[in-house]
Design a protein around this nucleic acid. Structure first.
Length: 220
DNA sequence: TATATGATTGCCT
DNA sequence: GGCAATCATATAG
């Protein structure tokens, strides 16, 4: 299985996010491989109020200052950017664009292809349905054994963690607003496979905000 | 330096 | 559908 190379990730973030749908994510550990097909991604760019540290890094004066953790978004393409949220949930991103330009693609959901029983062993015993193993950004990192300490800043163009294409035809791709955001909601930068049960159950942020607004109006 | 909050999940009713 | 868990980081003061 031939890994996608650095040039693939040096392209514009939105294009990479879309192209990664249908691609395999391969995790090699002693004894075997864990493989999932990517069915959902989100794009984050430097020109994006939803980006980590956007205000401090990109400021109001147009001067870019890569500082703190956000500096890790400017590194070489195909580098892993692992972000921890709400206690022990790790989200896997792959850095895009040429070195010196900020950009990343968040891997949000996988369809298990190989090593399903070992993925299950990494997840809580209460998980019954196969789709619940990897249908969310924090779930798939748990299933594949990906964490901040092991993978943040590592290169994703080869084992133990890399992307690869097989000869399966490209699935249909749809776009929506991203999930779980309060800023940059209007950008349709989430890509997913429609009708695929392994896509995360989250509601796009623009839909969620509209619902909230309707509810608020209803009360008053 | 101090506080607020999130690119979520899992378990509860 | 609600809510707690629980802390690094971003942003306010």
């Amino acid at each position: 299985m031939k890994p996608l190379d650095r040039a693939y990730f040096a392209r514009p973030t939105l294009q990479v996010a879309r192209d990664l749908i249908g691609v395999l994510l391969v995790r090699e550990r002693g004894g075997g491989r864990l493989i999932g097909r990517i069915v959902e991604t989100e794009a984050y760019t430097g020109d994006d109020p939803a980006m980590h540290g956007w205000k401090a890094t990109f400021g109001d004066d147009g001067v870019v200052r890569p500082e703190g953790r956000a500096a890790d978004l400017f590194v070489a393409p195909a580098t892993a950017y692992v972000y921890r949220i709400y206690y022990t949930n790790w989200l896997l991103n792959v850095v895009t664009e040429p070195e010196g330009t900020a950009g990343a693609v968040l891997i949000r959901a996988l369809q298990p292809v190989e090593g399903i029983e070992r993925m299950r062993a990494h997840r809580p015993d209460s998980i019954r349905r196969e789709r619940d193993l990897t249908n969310g950004p924090g779930k798939l990192t748990q299933a594949l054994g990906i964490d901040d300490a092991t993978f943040h800043g590592t290169d994703l163009t080869g084992p133990p963690l890399y992307f690869a294409e097989d000869d399966m035809p490209k699935p249909e791709i749809a776009a929506s607003s991203r999930i779980g955001l309060t800023r940059g909601v209007e950008r349709p930068w989430r890509f997913f496979v429609p009708e695929n049960p392994f896509v995360s159950p989250g509601v796009p942020s623009d839909v969620k905000q509209a619902r909230k607004e309707a509810k608020r109006r209803g009360r008053s």
